[in-house]
Write a protein that binds this DNA or RNA. Structure first.
Length: 214
DNA sequence: AATAGGATTTCCT
DNA sequence: GGAAATCCTATTC
């Protein structure tokens, strides 16, 4: 199994977010290999003018983001110590702490300097379920990696992985099989630009977080 | 089924 | 000082 290459991530975040559905997130850690099929993602862009490739996009949301930027993106206020990975080369892990307690794993997308990222929100566990269960403190497969904080915890991902190159191990993506149609809808927990359809999930998949929309 | 609150870091006003 | 890309538990309807 070869990791997904840099070129896969050097595209707009919504494209990467869609195409990651069905792919495997793999972590080869000391505790063993854990892996899961990605079933839910979200795309994030940047401040107005920071995402040049959006100029060629036709979707209504793209026009809105060209004009207003993506206020929900961490890169929206500009470069900070925390968000610097979003501004760097594609295919790198951006891990941050939210609400003081939960870690969230993103992968940087777009060309270097274009501060986009894809948030990984839910996995269907595929390998190393016992390790995941130990990390999470629950046996319920449907809840092991449901929601971004739970996903990171189940996979053993922490801020120590911030900046890691995900086009090679130990934290990487493998090709996988998508098993249902892709559905797009509003992102979760977002209060600004709340109506942009930049959340993607597999239709009907029970491992998806939040409401079980069709 | 829905709502409320606590945990607790990082960044910006 | 306040808000934030969350999750868990407890309480109330």
């Amino acid at each position: 199994m070869r990791p997904l290459p840099r070129s896969f991530f050097a595209r707009d975040a919504d494209r990467v977010a869609r195409d990651l559905l069905g792919a495997l997130l793999v972590h080869d850690a000391a505790a063993g290999r854990t892996a899961g099929r990605i079933v839910e993602t979200e795309a994030y862009f940047g401040p107005p003018g920071a995402n040049p490739t959006l100029a060629r996009r036709r979707a209504p949301w793209a026009a809105w983001v060209r004009r207003n930027g993506d206020p929900a993106a961490h890169s929206f206020p500009g470069l900070t110590q925390r968000n610097r990975i979003m501004f760097g080369a594609p295919g790198h892990a951006y891990v941050y702490l939210i609400y003081g307690i939960n870690e969230c794993l993103n992968v940087s997308t777009g060309e270097e300097g274009d501060p986009q990222a894809v948030l990984l929100r839910a996995l269907e566990p595929a390998e190393g379920l016992a390790v995941m269960a130990r990390r999470r403190g629950t046996d319920d497969a449907a809840r092991l990696a449901r929601g971004p904080g739970n996903l990171a915890k189940a996979m053993g991902v922490t801020r120590a992985h911030n900046g890691a190159d995900m086009t090679k191990g130990p934290l990487w993506f493998a090709r996988g099989e998508r098993r249902a149609a892709v559905v797009a809808g509003p992102r979760v927990g977002v209060t600004k630009a709340a109506d942009l359809p930049l959340r993607f999930w597999e239709r009907g998949n029970g491992f998806v977080s939040g409401r079980r929309a069709g």
